[in-house]
Nucleic acid binder design. Structure first.
Lengths: 119, 119
DNA sequence: GTAAACAGTGGAGCGCGCTCCAAGGTCAAG
DNA sequence: CTTGACCTTGGAGCGCGCTCCACTGTTTAC
């Protein structure tokens, strides 16, 4: 698949895809004419990237995770460990959100404005 | 309280605090000598700002929320509505994280690499 | 054969969220 | 009266995550 099709299927711009490639988030090989060729599973991968990114992971972190996966020995155990690590990060984020939510809920009940007062 | 004390108590830099003020996240009045004076509750407010920010809210969004609170009629009902709105946003974020977590967990079990393959 | 649609590169620019710096005013201690 | 800590206001710069642009090459359709 060439970049235009990947752009359409992933909902990203061509520029964003090229940018991701420079950041090591995506690999391609080149056709004889110099055009990038992407594998079909770049589409779900990019969907994952966007989700992770929207949830506050930096592109560098996502790329590092992907690189670890590529370099991991192909045992299910090693992969599981990597995912477990990532899941722990997600869980931590969820806990923080839970705390923030509780704080908001509490103030909603008490009517405490949670804001800088005059003077 | 002057900016140095607020910086120390909030763990932020003076520059960051001045920057927040330009973005409408924080108010101060000026002493006759031109120094900024902050209220004591700027400290918990900044703690809230940092938490919200770390969880993926932009400064603009946080400032907008703060402004709404300042402009809200001072009824408990109105404030509750504002907090309920914010809580809904937090809940949505948590749901997304739950989905991402599940996706990760599933792939950890199946050993599916979740990455762009060669070719 | 030509036009349109696609691809490539390099570089500038931009919004966000700051940090750092220079030049200067204020104030308390010695 | 100087020293030093603190404050002020610009303005430049920076890492992130792109976008946009100019210019060029390739492929496809008529």
């Amino acid at each position: 698949m060439r970049i235009g099709e990947l752009a359409e299927r992933s909902g990203l711009s061509r520029d964003a895809i090229r940018f991701y490639e420079t950041r090591g988030l995506l690999e391609s090989h080149r056709s004889p004419n110099g055009y990038r060729e992407f594998a079909a599973d770049a589409v779900p991968w990019l969907a994952y990237v966007r989700t992770a990114q929207r949830l506050g992971f930096t592109l560098a972190a996502i790329a590092a995770h992907g690189a670890e996966l590529r370099e991991a020995p192909d045992s299910a155990a090693a992969l599981s460990a990597l995912f477990a690590e990532k899941i722990a990060v997600v869980d931590a984020k969820m806990s923080e959100l839970a705390v923030l939510r509780e704080e908001l809920a509490e103030r909603a009940v008490t009517g405490c404005p949670l804001r800088p007062e005059q003077q």
